[in-house]
Nucleic acid binder design. Structure first.
Lengths: 190, 190
DNA sequence: AAAAATATTGAATGTAAATTCAATGAACAA
DNA sequence: TTGTTCATTGAATTTACATTCAATATTTTT
């Protein structure tokens, strides 16, 4: 691949990153193509040289979000609590390292929830189904006695909503920092 | 006040409620005046007879949200934990009773956070400063030994973000229900 | 260096949505 | 009943964007 292609790919990434920022801070609808263009110092016309439409840009971001869902952690953990702790610590760790992660979280949540999301994009976003992934772990932990009693799906939901709320805040106001993973894990601890 | 006025006020409320729903599910920007009009079965033109602009409608909702911040609970509680528990239980209780409460939460959070919010509206929204309200309670609880150690502001933030995340989910997907207040209070429990 | 390909721009163009308005209908007061 | 006021509509008007395009510069290839 020639240097020209690399340059172009590089530029695409810059645009995607700028768009992610804007979509998360202003919302998809409120973000103008001209905002994105300005934010990467290029003319509006040129932006259409890189992406055929605002929606395609959005779609590509959501696809990226879907692929980036392979979180480490959550693999070789002894008990359920360790599993939650590892997951949360790793997530917070990555969020601090790479600010786009928290933003991606928000983007995906919006894409899933917002009634304004084009259907085919929503479908892509809905492939990430984190809430249900935690259910079996919770059930195991409840047998062990390390996770509190209660409906596993509801517990998973509570935990996940909290993570979402934190990510949402951090994406927009990183200066407030992130809580200790332990605090959040205590939502499910028995 | 004549019956005419009451009718008009009634209609305004309907519009406000419909707009709240749409702003929360689709976002302010993505919501068309025609969406709101349709949702209350009135012509677009007539809607402007009730509200001079989409933005004024938004502003009025944010004002309502600001006034509705006088939560009961959080008053006569013995210790810090009881204070958090009462607050959370009451909040969840009201959310179940009156669905607009969770939605109002989301609206206010968006108004505060979104870079697209008109400044004068953001200023109104920012008058609600819940995070800091919990700080003294946390400090007291830490002396009592009932609240876990750690930066009070950060703890308050963690608690509040979780509440936000839960409200956000509940506003859009109430069928999932709300968690037990205790689970969330355990974020700060010592 | 000439030609080809690609990058970039700024100015159209088209469209969808907000806002205005003139006209009509319904309730109300005299 | 008749004039007045308010409710309501649908059709302009205006505005704000997304998207397209023709023209120009820059880089690459031959």
């Amino acid at each position: 691949m020639g240097v020209r292609q690399e340059q172009k790919e590089q530029r695409r990434q810059e645009i995607l990153y700028a768009a992610l920022n804007l979509f998360v801070t202003k919302g998809y609808s409120a973000t103008k193509i001209s905002d994105i263009a300005e934010s990467v110092s290029m003319s509006v016309g040129l932006l259409f040289h890189y992406f055929e439409s605002k929606e395609k840009l959005y779609e590509e971001l959501v696809r990226m979000g879907l692929e980036g869902t392979n979180f480490p952690g959550a693999q070789k953990c002894e008990g359920a609590i360790e599993c939650f702790t590892q997951f949360t610590e790793q997530l917070f760790f990555f969020m601090k390292k790479q600010p786009y992660i928290a933003k991606m979280f928000v983007l995906m949540a919006n894409a899933q929830r917002s009634a304004g999301t084009p259907v085919h994009i929503r479908e892509i976003a809905l492939k990430v189904n984190t809430i249900e992934q935690f259910v079996p772990i919770i059930e195991a932990g409840q047998k062990e006695g390390t996770i509190r009693q209660g409906d596993p799906l509801s517990l998973s939901n509570a935990f996940w909503c909290s993570i979402q709320g934190i990510a949402e805040q951090y994406a927009v106001h990183p200066e407030m920092g992130l809580p200790k993973a332990e605090w959040i894990v205590d939502i499910v601890r028995g």
